[in-house]
Write a protein that binds this DNA or RNA. Structure first.
Lengths: 346, 346
DNA sequence: CTGAAAGCGCTTACAG
DNA sequence: CTGAAAGCGCTTACAG
């Protein structure tokens, strides 16, 4: 491999001059600069990243910790992960993927204390997340997408799910809905104490109660046991038939419910409004006119990268920072007033 | 940070002894070993990875090049990417994600010539893939999942799609099918010359022709224009009604077709057998009894990692190596003989 | 505006 | 079985 010495020799300057030409940390005569650059081009010189890193400079690598679980929602994974990677790269950093469900903390510590990585992004945060609790031992700044209990050692950024819950309840109430169904997310998220499902659910139920709105919450939802036909049948059999369905369920489950509603000749949004909160859709495949409050992974991932890079490059102390993003309410004109005759039918 | 000097001093040995204790490249007395290890534990010493790498050792990083496209199939992406990462990690390497649709080659070169990465895995290969064509310039061994034209500079590993195509045709023929429908994959894959769609399609059509089986191929399939109802209607309206549907389509599209078949009261597999070749399903959500010839990303990803690590660790020259994996035929008992009265109906 | 030299934290001949 | 020392390819005070 051709090194900095070869370049210096061929250009007839000192090694330090070559280094300064590359870093721009010294004023160099334009003749010297062009001479050096020519030689670099000619020899195809690439600075050895490992030597640069060892000198204490940055590694220009950000590690992304994402527990790879068998039961993970791959669409959701892709959205957050890919978006984050995209922003990390466009900020001039490489992305190192730390998976490891079990040795996650050890892995993060290793690459941090190693100087392999300049910073860490934590994805898929649980309420009591060990990666957040140990964030003081990483030796590098750390930022989480999510809302863990322990936020003293890392920055956290998330959608404001409390606001989202209130918003959903208020919106339906304002339109005149008084009885609404709530379709739960996959049960594992509650078991795992993922903060977003819990914050949203609590906020929604609380505001609904304040408003005097009746909420019929579904039972636990799991892929292999959930029966959409039965669910829809039960809803329609209620004495007080709900006029809206608020879903926190994942897209696949919600899709099966939409199909079941269609089969039961319940039309959306004429008979029942469907409001999906924070679910990902492959929009082209979603035929029913549902409304959604989207998660906007794009906005989140930009922000999380910006915060981390500020800490890396400017030494800003981001520990304890909490940033909540307002969910945008997107109404495709399909959350409507409840139809009175549908109400009476029940 | 505590360095190797601190450990040496605290343990009362030389720096080189500490290094050899860690590397195991020298026989050391057990007393010295335990003394050194104790100190390492006590001080929490972690070798500086950048210094280790600079000394010419390996970086223990494998870079994974995956063009992140807006239109990518995220399920498929996840399957290959996550599986590959899993195997890379369990082999003791970290995974660096190189996305970049445009500067992919530059990125790979950089991390290769840099010594940042020890090797490269190329995912999502096209027939004329620039990343494969330039693989001689990476300075590190390279292996691709896929089947590019230019295979001189990297190892390639793929499912044997030709065999898969023959298998699918032969299987249906043996069961007695004489008229079958073929549902194309998303058009972009043909436009992009992804080898798997082309190899499969050609092989299937060729064997079908040899056997004298009639194949009705669908028109181009795209998310925003494909109309499953219309497609099913057209199929049922054919003079010679097909008794089997071979699908290379992605799961979402195939799902809509299954729904449309159900709505048209065409029962699977009684009226029509459905054979999905290499599509990913979220199996729990797939109600219809279809059969599939799966892609087995697991087997592929293990193999690709093994080959690359052999090159990295043993210096094996893997350029030009081509390994084809036999697709496994999975029949859930749902590719059946054509029903004669359904045939007569047409 | 530029150069000679120290040193980053390791590994590995070289020497015993 | 162990140590003293050279050197990996850079960056950055130090000096002019």
């Amino acid at each position: 491999m051709t090194g900095i010495k070869d370049v210096a020799q061929a250009a007839g300057v000192s090694v330090s001059t070559v280094s300064y030409v590359l870093s721009g940390k010294r004023t160099i005569s334009s003749q010297t600069i062009s001479k050096v650059m020519d030689v670099i081009d000619e020899l195809g010189y690439v600075p050895n990243a490992n030597a640069q890193r060892m000198r204490g400079g940055r590694s220009q690598i950000i590690s992304i910790s994402e527990p790879i679980r068998k039961d993970m929602n791959q669409i959701e994974f892709s959205s957050y992960f890919l978006q984050t990677v995209k922003h990390v790269k466009s900020a001039g950093y490489d992305a190192l993927l730390l998976s490891g469900e079990h040795e996650a903390v050890d892995d993060i510590r290793r690459v941090g204390n190693n100087n392999l990585a300049d910073g860490v992004i934590l994805l898929d945060i649980e309420t009591d997340d060990i990666r957040a609790r140990r964030a003081d031992s990483y030796g590098k700044p750390c930022v989480a997408i999510g809302y863990p209990q322990e936020r003293r050692y890392c920055a956290c950024i998330d959608i404001d799910f409390v606001h989202m819950g209130h918003m959903a309840a208020q919106r339906l109430f304002d339109l005149g809905h008084r009885v609404v169904a709530a379709l739960r997310d996959l049960e594992m998220h509650y078991v795992r104490q993922s903060s977003y499902v819990i914050l949203f659910r609590d906020a929604f139920l609380q505001r609904a109660e304040e408003l005097g709105m009746t909420v019929m919450e579904s039972g636990p939802v799991e892929y292999d046991t959930f029966d959409p036909q039965q669910y829809v049948e039960d809803l329609l059999g209620e004495k007080q038939r709900p006029t809206a369905l608020v879903s926190q369920a994942d897209a696949a489950i919600l899709n099966t419910v939409l199909d079941a509603l269609a089969l039961a000749n319940v039309s959306i949004p004429d008979d029942i409004s469907v409001l999906s909160c924070g679910t990902y859709f492959e929009a082209e495949l979603m035929k029913a006119p549902i409304s959604e409050i989207p998660l906007e992974p794009e906005g989140l991932c930009t922000k999380v990268t910006d915060i981390l890079i500020d800490a890396i490059e400017n030494g800003t102390d981001i520990r304890g920072v909490l940033e909540l993003i307002e969910p945008k309410y997107v109404d495709r004109g399909s959350v409507s007033k409840p139809r009175s005759d549908f109400l009476r039918q029940s």
